[in-house]
């Protein structure tokens, strides 16, 4: 990846982070921490990796995306807005009674949302269904899903892991957002689901471990996933929860609450600084 591409993606991802903060600030609730941790990965997916068309969000041949960690909807809406699926100003309506931007993704009302999610563990199974359908009917599209690390405590994630390997769903690529924190504390202390790499490998998956905020590593990982045949791939993406907003970084506290005006201003200033540093 050349330098200008990295710069462009970093700038878009920073705008996605702005969208996340705008959304949860205006909603006065929501999940900023885990949204910020996936901002780079989801930006790469929608701007580089996936075959999608904002003008034709239901295009049959499109690649599919399932946000299995559905509570990080602010990141999905922000990237859909950046990519042109939904108007940017709608971000401010997140979680409001008359808005289509539900607290967790609703495929019925939101262009670009391929699956309704929110209840943890269900999204990866739905992604398996999409990938299986592609195989059964000879379609070439690929399916992507992002899982939470806390989410991997759900038994259904491992039912799906078994299923995907059993049916050799090499058109499926999961990303595990390894930010290390869940609501009640560090993931390894609440209910330790590690080691993810060995577990997924034992279930028959191809495993790639990367830094979730390094676009060159993200690009290489998705390219590798595409080249793997006969098995699904999981990318274990080591991330920083709250990435980009100083006081939210590595803090459980910002899993599920929105900043009030003073801290909102700090968040915006933090993201302004990042934008300046990108150049």
């Amino acid at each position: 990846m050349d330098k200008s591409k990295v710069t462009e993606l970093r700038r878009i991802a920073n705008n996605v982070r702005r969208g996340i903060i705008e959304g949860v600030y205006n909603a006065a609730c929501g999940h900023p921490g885990g949204s910020l941790s996936i901002a780079d990965i989801i930006t790469y997916l929608y701007f580089e990796e996936m075959n999608v068309d904002p003008k034709n969000p239901k295009m049959d041949s499109r690649d599919r995306f399932v946000l299995s960690k559905g509570h990080t909807a602010p990141a999905l809406y922000a990237v859909l807005a950046e990519r042109g699926f939904i108007p940017k100003e709608d971000i401010k309506t997140l979680r409001k009674t008359d808005s289509y931007l539900q607290g967790h993704p609703d495929m019925k009302g939101t262009p670009g949302v391929d699956m309704s999610t929110g209840s943890l563990g269900l999204g990866i199974s739905a992604a398996c269904g999409m990938a299986l359908s592609a195989k059964a009917f000879g379609n070439a599209y690929r399916v992507y899903t992002i899982l939470g690390d806390g989410e991997s405590e759900e038994g259904q994630v491992w039912e799906a892991a078994m299923f995907a390997a059993h049916y050799k769903l090499d058109n499926l690529c999961a990303v595990l957002d390894w930010n290390g924190l869940q609501i009640d504390g560090p993931v390894t202390e609440v209910m330790n689901p590690t080691p993810h790499d060995e577990k997924f490998r034992a279930f028959g998956w191809h495993v790639i471990s990367i830094d979730a905020h390094d676009f060159e590593a993200i690009e290489a990982a998705f390219a590798e996933a595409k080249s793997v045949k006969g098995k699904p791939t999981v990318i274990i993406a080591k991330s920083v929860k709250g990435k980009g907003v100083s006081y939210m970084e590595n803090s459980c506290e910002w899993h599920g609450q929105a900043p009030k005006e003073d801290l909102y201003k700090v968040a915006v200033a933090d993201l302004d600084k990042i934008e300046e540093s990108i150049g």
Binding site: G121, A126, G129, F163
Partner: peptide, 16 residues
Amino acid sequence: AEGNMMSVAAGIATTG
């Protein structure tokens, strides 16, 4: 694994 099966079915249905 009935839970997984129902969500897999949902995923298939999204593809028409």
